[in-house]
């Protein structure tokens, strides 16, 4: 598997580290214990297209948001994660 880093170009999988699901959003401070538990621990086991965080630690050290089909490994989109490459993503 290869990932096309928006900053580095096409690179082998070994340069990247997988974090996991990019969908969960940190709940508001007053959201309650159930929402925090859900955010920290509960994950869907998606068979199909999934949005994931990957880290290009063996390259430009940017965090990426990768849209990948977990059944076929087909990658349909790669974009910088929020905060990676300030110029590209904005503040």
């Amino acid at each position: 598997m290869r990932i096309v880093c928006p900053f580095c170009g096409e690179r082998e999988l070994g340069e990247f580290t997988y974090l996991g699901d990019a969908k969960p959003q940190r709940p508001a401070a007053d959201a309650g214990e159930d929402a925090v538990y859900d955010y920290v621990y509960l994950r869907d086991n998606i068979a199909g297209v999934m949005s994931e965080h990957w880290y290009h630690g063996g390259g430009c050290r940017a965090w990426l948001k990768v849209t990948r089909n977990t059944l076929t490994h087909e990658i349909s989109a790669v974009e910088p994660a929020a905060g990676a490459g300030a110029a590209k993503v904005g503040a």
Binding site: G14, E15, G57, G58, G59
Partner: peptide, 8 residues
């Protein structure tokens, strides 16, 4: 920016 032998 790349890796050689698992080294940045």
């Amino acid at each position: 920016a790349t890796s050689m032998d698992h080294t940045s």
